[in-house]
């Protein structure tokens, strides 16, 4: 059984970061601090959380989704995490309205969710399985789009007191997951070590990375 090292490493680093208030101070996103030159914050904010409950929920989601996806394609997991961190980080700082602070890894989980759903949809499951994966993907995308459009959270989950939901984080995270899966699929379709099951569309699920 493949050990999901990438996912475990991300979760371990994020869990460890939560134990030190000083580390959280260094890693969370703060608009003014970034403007003052602390450029890493939009990207490191995904490693810290507002509360222990939020840490458990977000990292639990990352762990489960990442482990499932990494069984299928480690490369896709690396791309999904990286693209979510990059896209959401840039969106935090440059997209309106400005925010004060941001913490959380749920956007990374969103990326992994979308990448996994896309991978399942294009995988070698039967029609029911592919249809179910497509439905789960559509529901998730609809939800984050609706949240981003209205600016209101739907079924808001674990957050800290006084913390508001930033819908664009999940939307950008989902976009990062789609981009990652697409890039992995292109790489797989390029014929480098790809084994495409007979009768199944090509995708990153069919390659071993």
């Amino acid at each position: 059984m493949r050990i999901p090292w990438v996912t475990l490493s991300f979760v371990a680093v994020a869990a460890a970061a939560g134990f030190s208030p000083n580390t959280i101070d260094w890693l969370e996103y703060r608009q003014a601090a970034v403007s003052a030159g602390e450029w890493w914050r939009p990207f490191s904010a995904h490693l810290v959380h507002w509360s222990a409950r939020m840490t458990a929920v977000d990292l639990g989601a990352v762990l489960l989704l990442g482990a499932l996806l990494e069984r299928r394609s480690r490369f896709t997991v690396v791309l999904a995490i990286a693209s979510a961190i990059l896209l959401v980080g840039l969106g935090l700082h440059f997209l309106p309205p400005p925010i004060g602070r941001y913490r959380g890894s749920s956007s990374v989980a969103s990326a992994l969710y979308v990448a996994l759903a896309l991978d399942l949809r294009r995988g070698s499951m039967g029609r029911f399985g592919r249809g179910a994966a497509a439905a789960m993907l559509a529901l998730f995308v609809l939800k984050v789009c609706a949240e981003a459009w209205t600016g209101e959270a739907i079924f808001a989950g674990a957050m800290g007191a006084g913390v508001t939901v930033l819908p664009r984080a999940h939307l950008l995270g989902a976009a990062g997951g789609a981009v990652a899966w697409g890039a992995a699929a292109r790489r797989g379709a390029g014929g480098r070590g790809v084994s495409v099951p007979s009768g199944a569309p090509s995708g990153p699920s069919s390659r071993s990375s």
Binding site: A61, I99, G104, A132, F140, A156, G157, V163, L166
Partner: peptide, 23 residues
């Protein structure tokens, strides 16, 4: 500087993740 923000995974995402995991 705006507000303190985060994403928010809740019960809906939890159910969706479990369905994906089963698949």
């Amino acid at each position: 500087g705006g507000e303190d923000t985060s994403g928010a995974f809740g019960a809906a995402e939890g159910i969706a993740i479990l369905v994906l995991a089963l698949l």
